[in-house]
């Protein structure tokens, strides 16, 4: 059922959510809009195409405690479990889509990442459709769109001075019927569908430039191409692309101990770092920028699709905007297609 909520009522809802649980929302600070815990709706920035960092920060935090240990003569291990419930507001369609891609890695197969699973279970995602996609956005290249709502518990679409709303899951219905009680009104179904359609069909200019179709297969026989040598030379070897990416999920485990007790953490790692694959004996199967750059793009556009049958990218455009040297996935897709077309 489609609903509407006024901007003022949405503020009231967000204030309630901030009071009753942990609310994460876009905040503008020193010129950067990013997701942060907020205490009140008044802290939230609504004028953003997308946040600098993604919902990944709160479902799969950059570092999190896994266990506590004591090693004074004996050994005891205490598992640490993420318990805190949270609501994330203002999540864009590309980031909602990224959650499904992360789910495939972290919750399927023989082993589940129980920390991620717990956070997923305890997080309500409130999506916000895109009014004005940035010139680096290309979600449509992957078949998503500015109104794509899959993954949201509640989806909001700005419609004039109010919002069209739809609860898409039990968690979402609990928000609408619980803290949201009395704040939503039923929407005119036809008008609401028209709003959704307008968002779904909204133009994403950069998306038109990036044709992803068939890139997974083109890369099947591209491992040895000279292209990787050429393109990787400009890589700075920093972790920007991997850390701002909503789908990059590589991590390392690390201990910090003092006086017989300590913590084991899980921290993000980056395939762009030289030490990432370096083994204890010194051998490194990916010794130079060429192998590392190739790995990142092959993973997103070929290896992951082989395993999980979709691309590991949602076209959020963060790497397009933030890679200091313009070595981003949209460019690689265009380049590979160009190389193949001339081959």
């Amino acid at each position: 059922m489609l609903l509407t909520i006024t901007a003022d009522n949405l503020k009231s809802l967000l204030d309630k959510l901030a009071r009753d649980s942990l609310l994460v929302a876009p905040v503008l600070e020193d010129g950067v809009t990013r997701l942060k815990p907020v205490k009140a709706a008044s802290e939230i920035a609504l004028d953003y195409s997308n946040t600098a960092t993604s919902i990944k920060d709160f479902l799969f935090p950059q570092s999190e405690d896994l266990l506590r240990f004591v090693t004074d003569g004996t050994l005891s291990i205490e598992e640490i479990k993420p318990e805190r419930a949270q609501v994330a507001f203002g999540i864009r369609p590309c980031d909602l889509a990224s959650v499904a891609l992360m789910d495939k890695v972290l919750t399927t197969g023989e082993y589940a990442d129980t920390h991620y699973q717990a956070r997923r279970k305890n997080t309500v995602l409130i999506g916000l459709a895109c009014e004005s996609p940035a010139d680096t956005c290309f979600c449509t290249s992957y078949g998503y769109n500015p109104g794509h709502s899959a993954g949201a518990d509640v989806m909001l679409y700005k419609d004039g001075d109010q919002y069209l709303a739809e609860a898409l899951s039990d968690k979402g219905r609990e928000v609408v019927g619980g803290p949201g009680e009395g704040l939503f009104k039923p929407a005119d179904e036809a008008a609401g569908q028209a709003v959704k359609k307008a968002y779904a069909e909204k133009e994403v200019p950069f998306g038109k430039e990036v044709d992803v179709e068939g890139i997974d297969q083109l890369l099947d026989n591209f491992f040895d191409d000279q292209y990787w040598d050429d393109v990787s030379k400009k890589c700075l070897g920093c972790g920007t692309c991997t850390y701002v990416c909503p789908t990059c999920h590589c991590f390392l485990l690390t201990d910090e101990a003092r006086g017989g007790e300590g913590l084991r953490f899980r921290c993000w790692d980056s395939c762009m770092f030289a030490n990432y694959t370096k083994m204890a004996g010194g051998h490194n199967p990916r010794p130079s920028k060429k192998e590392r750059v190739r790995q990142r793009f092959m993973h997103k556009l070929n290896y992951y699709p082989h395993r999980y049958h979709s691309y590991l990218c949602t076209g959020c455009g963060r790497c397009v905007a933030m890679c200091p040297v313009g070595l981003h996935i949209a460019g690689v897709i265009k380049d590979v297609k160009g190389v193949k077309a001339h081959a």
Binding site: E29, D30, V32, R34, T53, Q62, L236, G237, C238, G239, T240, Y243, V244, S270, P324
Partner: peptide, 16 residues
């Protein structure tokens, strides 16, 4: 504190 709490430890500053 506000500035450094934004750092994502990408090391782009160092690498450039």
């Amino acid at each position: 504190t506000r500035q450094f709490s934004r750092c994502i430890r990408c090391y782009a500053c160092r690498n450039v």
